[in-house]
Structure formats: structure tokens, C-alpha cells
Computed example of a mutant assay.
Amino acid sequence: MTPHFSRRRFLAGLASGAGVLALAGCDRLAQNADVDAVLRNTEKLTMGSQRALLPRQRLAREYAETDLSPVFRANGTQMPDSEEYAHLLEREFADWRLQVDGLVQRPQSLSLAELKRFPSRTQITRHDCVEGWSAIGKWQGVPLAHVLDAAGLKPGARYVVLHCADELEKALDGSGRYYESIDLLDAYHPQTILAYGMNGEALPVPHGAPLRLRVERQLGYKHAKYLMRIEVVDAFSAQFGGKGGYWEDRGYEWYAGI
């Protein structure tokens, strides 16, 4: 397994080792252009090394039913705080639609029932959080590849941006809303699914109902919950903070491969 490089852990290590830097000092380091450039280059090295060593379609380990964790912690948002989401939940997501647009030939607006008509995949995998905990869960959903193929990618498509319903910070420009992105290599990996089921039941609200991403070869914060829109783009530099995700805009690395 390729060692995983974490910007946050690296910065925290600097703070701990010096004994004088507080978290605010870490944030200042993260905002320093020279330090940021070094960290970004190291992240690229980690990504390049991992992908060179591992086959592109290599599967993350899958487990047996007997391995399921008795408790699977719900991290991050437990319930999006918006009238829109409250209405969708009240109607049991009958009015919910997944928008698929951007660099696609056939934009989609898919209901949960329509997504369930795609071929599905069930997998039991381990969720690894950047905070240091893990849990094993059973996920059912549609491979993201099927949805992208239904929309048809246009030339220049490189990344899939996942827009979510949960807003972690109030911001007029929408930059406080959770989002994530992955490249097409991970988007087309057979274990990358849009999950609507967990442990044999409908996906619970704390775990991202009605739909969440499972991208099994990456850390937990990449597994975006409460999906509302999939946007195919050629670059994510114009998305909010320009780093490819809510936490990436705040110092985490974009590539979180494990």
C-alpha cells in the first residue's frame, strides 16, 4: 500500500513538533504560497506513485457479512439544514432528482426510481476516515460509470464534480456547501457507486440519503453525501475555492487514495 500523505496531518505535525504553533499557525502555513506549492507537489507524487504501482482497476478489499461493523459512525453532517431538503425528506424523496450536466451530450434528471433501474452493485467495504477510525458497511447502488455513459461524455471531460445538499457554512456564493470531485479514472472504477442502500436497508439520512458516493479507494471525506447534482468538467479551478472539494479548499489534499 502506498503511504498516504495528508496536508492536515503534515501541518499538525509541524505545529506539534515546534511546540509553539497553534492551529491558526497551521492555517497560516496552509495559506502560504510556497508551503502550499510544496504540499501540492508532494500530493501529485503520492498520486502518481500509487497509480503507477497499482493496476487501474484493482479492487479495494471486500468483506463478508460477518465482518459488518455493529456500529457505523455517521460523520460530518447528520441532517442538511435547509427547507428544500426537509421537503424532500417529508415526501420520502419522491420529488428528488439527480441532475447530471456539464460536459455531457445528454443532460439527465434522474429520480431515485430511475436510478434503481440501472444495473446495481452490492459491495461490503471498509470506510477509512482521515480522523483515524474505520468501519465496514454493505453498500448497494448504481455504478457511476452507468450514469456517465447514459449522459455521454463530451470531448475534454476530465473530472466529475459532486454537488451536495448539506451546507457547512453560510455563504452567499455557495462556497459553504459541500462538494467533492474525482477524475474519470476513479469515476469509472467498478467499485465507485452512487449508493442508495446501506446494510440491506434504504440509505439512512445521517449517512447521506437519498444518495451518496462510494469511491472505495479513497478516504472518507471524498465519499460525498446528500447528492443533488453531478457536473462533468474539464477542470475544477473555477469551482468555489478551486481545489476540488469543500475540505480541499480548506487545506486537505485533493487526492486521498488509500
Rank of each mutant, 00 (worst) to 15 (best):
P3K: 14
P3T: 13
S6M: 11
R7Y: 14
R8W: 15
R8I: 15
R8M: 12
R9K: 13
F10R: 05
F10V: 07
F10L: 08
A12Y: 07
G17W: 13
G19F: 04
G19C: 02
V20C: 07
V20A: 04
L21M: 11
A24P: 04
A24W: 06
R28Q: 13
L29F: 10
L29W: 13
D36F: 03
A37F: 02
V38R: 14
L39N: 01
L39I: 12
R40D: 01
N41S: 14
K44A: 15
T46W: 12
S49K: 14
S49Q: 14
R51D: 03
A52V: 03
P55Q: 02
R58N: 00
L59P: 03
E62K: 01
Y63S: 09
E65Y: 04
D67L: 06
P70G: 07
V71N: 02
R73A: 15
N75M: 12
E84Q: 12
Y85V: 13
H87T: 07
L98W: 00
Q99A: 15
V100N: 03
D101C: 10
P107I: 05
K116E: 15
R121T: 15
T125N: 01
D128C: 10
D128W: 00
E131N: 12
G132F: 09
W133S: 13
W139C: 05
Q140L: 10
G141V: 14
H146N: 15
V147K: 06
L148R: 06
Y159P: 01
A165F: 06
E167F: 04
G174K: 01
S181K: 11
L185A: 14
D186R: 10
A187V: 04
A187W: 06
Q191H: 09
L203Y: 03
P204I: 05
P204S: 06
V205K: 08
G208A: 02
P210I: 04
L213H: 04
L213M: 13
R217K: 08
L219W: 14
Y221F: 13
H223F: 06
L227Q: 12
I230C: 07
E231R: 10
A235Q: 09
Q239R: 12
R250S: 02
G251Q: 10
Y252C: 06
G257T: 11
I258E: 09
